[in-house]
Structure formats: structure tokens, C-alpha cells
Amino acid sequence: MSEPSLAIRNFSDLANPTRFLALVAVLWPWLAGLTLCLFAAGLYLSFTTEGDYQQGETVRIMYVHVPAAWLSMMCYTVMALSALGTLVWRHPLADVSAKAAAPIGAGFTFLALVTGSLWGKPMWGTWWVWDARLTSVFVLFLMYLGLIALNRAMDDPARAAKVSAVLILVGFVNIPIIKFSVEWWNTLHQPASVVRMGGPTIDPEFLHPLLIMAVAFTLLFFTLHILAMRNEILRRRIAVLRRHAARAAGRKKGAA
């Protein structure tokens, strides 16, 4: 019998979990290496560039706060695309992707909230205000926790996948609210200064470390995501094996 080909020629080939696992095995060391190199460069620039004339040294908090906040939204967008994959295309790995991304998204959202608070205290004079940006990000954090809890609470993975996918898509309404909250409402949080019409308004002295740290955090996210997906595929394989073994044992008992 000939070996099944593990070559990935188009996107639909990734629907085969065995092929996906083979791809992850090749990809993850490169992604992890690149992530480490970018973090080394980003951290070097974060601590060697000048402080801001108004914010002083606290400008360095921005180099971890902004990437974490971007990732909190990007991770949810990845989950929303995965939810579409589950409901529309019934892609076998779509639910695996959404489920694996939720804890990572919760982690980065938590980091964005904590570092934002740590910047707010010396700059605004308060750890927290219930303005539109901070509140909508806090709601995003609660949504991540809710989705993790929901997935753990349901025994039937097929049903959990559908319910989670619907909830993720409903919750996606929060992403544009987070992005545009600083423009729609009068918030203490400053408006966008990097991703905006007309280009970034911040000085290259701060923009360069920020962009390198953002790419490093994004690569960290994708490295963690594909590895968490690999773990989820293994978890599902184990569950199927246990079920088959239990059924076989039941049949043997019935025959005896």
C-alpha cells in the first residue's frame, strides 16, 4: 500500500489533521526562532531609544501594551473567521482553531488591560476609568473567558463547536466598537496614532520599536496558536480512541 501524501498543495489540504500536524512539525521551530530574534531586536530598541518629552520613561510601556491590545482584537478576528469555517464550510480544523485561540486571546487581553492600567496610573492619575475603550476591552476579556467556560462545560464537541461559533460571531460586534470607541465617544483613552487614515502620527523613535515588538508578538501568537491546535487535535484523537476502546470492551463483554 502506498503512503498517503503529506504534501500541502492548496488550502483545503489542511482539512486533513494528519497533514496539518506534519506542517506544524516543520513550521513551528522556524516560527519560534524568528519570534525570539524579533523579540531580541524589539526589546533592545525598546530600552535604548529615547523617552518621550511628556511621558518620560513610561512610553516604554506602549511597546508591550499596544501589541497586546492589537493581538486581543486580531485573535478574536481569527476566532470569528474560524467560526465562519465551522458554520459555513464545516472545515474540520475550524473549531480546533477557534478553541485553541481562546486562551491565547484571553492572555493577551489580560496583558493589554494590566499594562494599560500600569500606564494610566502615572499618566492619568488613575488605574482605571469606565470609558468606552477600556470597558469594551474588558467586555472582550469576559467574552474570551465565557467561550473557554462554554467549551469546557459541553461534553458533545460537535454541539459545543456550533454553539461557540454562533456566540463568537455575535460577539464580533465588539471588535469595531473597540476600534472606533475612541472616535465615537469622548474617551480618556487617546485616539489611534498608528493605524489611522493619513498614516502614523508618532515619531519614528517610538514607531520602530513599536512595530518590531508588534510583529514579534504576532509571530508569538501564531506559534502558540498552531501548537495549541496540535494539542487540541491530539486531545480529540485520544477521546475517539477511548470511545472506540470502551465500545470494543462493551461488545466483548456482551459476547461472553
Partner: peptide, 16 residues
Amino acid sequence: HTFYVAVSYIAAFAVS
């Protein structure tokens, strides 16, 4: 300010 910067980077490292 150094305190707030240090705690932020420790938090980033801890979460990662």
C-alpha cells in the same frame, strides 16, 4: 516611572 515600566515588562514576560 521605572517601577511602572518594570512591572509592565514583568507582566508581559509572565503572560508569554
